[in-house]
Design a binder for these strands. Structure first.
Lengths: 190, 190
DNA sequence: GCAGGTTTGCTAGCAGTGCTAGGATAAAGA
DNA sequence: TCTTTATCCTAGCACTGCTAGCAAACCTGC
């Protein structure tokens, strides 16, 4: 009984090790460096072990995405609750979102640009995902006026996402980032 | 003299064939289907021929991107010039942009999401690129007010881009697309 | 018309990818 | 102690982008 319990526990630990290692490797060297061989070497197991935990590389990335969403949700929440009023809360959340995308680009890409097999805008979405989006919604809520809250939040989110992705692969000049961010927020502040 | 001219011409034609075939293949089966072997078979030449025209696969994609930008610029221009007033022109350009991204998703991805080796937000950017962005700028111009035109256009563009990319890989519910688009445009119409 | 040199495009192969079948090895239960 | 079961690794498949080196076709000067 206890032996089996230990094995289950060790298995769970190894699964976390895989996900954590994949995230760290992606953040330090980019997703191109995260090959199944490299990842296996990093956790000091052979390749097929990965496939006894996950269906494939995409499933590993999906697990990383969930971890990342939890992190982002926490950062957005901190930014929002520290702000003194709704206007500044929206600005703070927008800035926190941008900072997250800048600081952890590989993680951000996995979360929102790579095609990953996870339910997003549905009730079946993982809690961490809904939590992150919920933080954005809370920030938009006081300023929504007559507009539909959900849709408005999605639109604001899209603006942030567009800013970050277009800048990150050279489509926008980096110098004007702050100005663009301010412009976007001003357009959603009333 | 004339013989060499013919050879140069034939070479140029083949180069166009490569780019066109790559674009068509991507549009019909996605970029994953555009392997160098497949592309070579499609143009009925061997693989190394591709490398006598382009430095690598990325360079082929870059050429497709330029083609795509020219197409998009034309469609945006048509939408803008057909509109009766600035407000509706912005809405028309936004809708045309969204329609382009919806209709030719693979091409759109190559243009704005894939990391492709092309100068974008610089004076050295290919004319077609600047032209497409210029159409957006023209649409934003009458409604810019005191805001910096270039930066405001970039921000509006980011909004459109975010909407399309997040929707296209399942992060946003498709049903609410029109509402989101209308919301975005309303926020940039005054 | 014919040798010489150049251009052109092919076959074959390299190092890498995600993923999997099969057998060896270790641990568990009788 | 012996058998069964779970665990994990080695080796390999089919694919990727890319390239070295050779064969054939071509143009040129005689």
């Amino acid at each position: 009984m206890s032996i089996q319990a230990r094995r289950v526990r060790e298995r769970a630990e190894r699964e976390r090790l895989i996900v954590t290692t994949a995230r760290e490797l992606a953040e330090s060297e980019g997703w191109d460096a995260v090959t199944t061989r490299r990842l296996a070497a990093e956790i000091e197991y052979s390749q097929p072990v990965l496939y006894s935990h996950f269906k494939g590389k995409d499933a590993i990335m999906a697990a990383v995405v969930v971890e990342g969403c939890a992190d982002m949700a926490a950062e957005l929440r901190a930014a929002r609750t520290a702000a003194p009023d709704p206007q500044r809360a929206l600005a703070a959340v927008g800035a926190a979102y941008a900072a997250f995308a800048e600081r952890r680009p590989a993680l951000y890409d996995a979360m929102f640009t790579h095609a990953v097999d996870l339910p997003f805008a549905t009730p079946e979405a993982p809690p961490a995902l809904k939590e992150a989006f919920g933080e954005l919604r809370e920030a938009v809520l006081p300023l929504a006026g007559d507009d539909n809250l959900e849709t408005l939040t999605e639109t604001f989110w899209s603006g942030l996402h567009g800013l970050m992705t277009l800048m990150r692969n050279g489509r926008l000049r980096r110098e004007d980032h702050d100005e663009r961010l301010a412009l976007l927020i001003s357009r959603f502040s009333g």
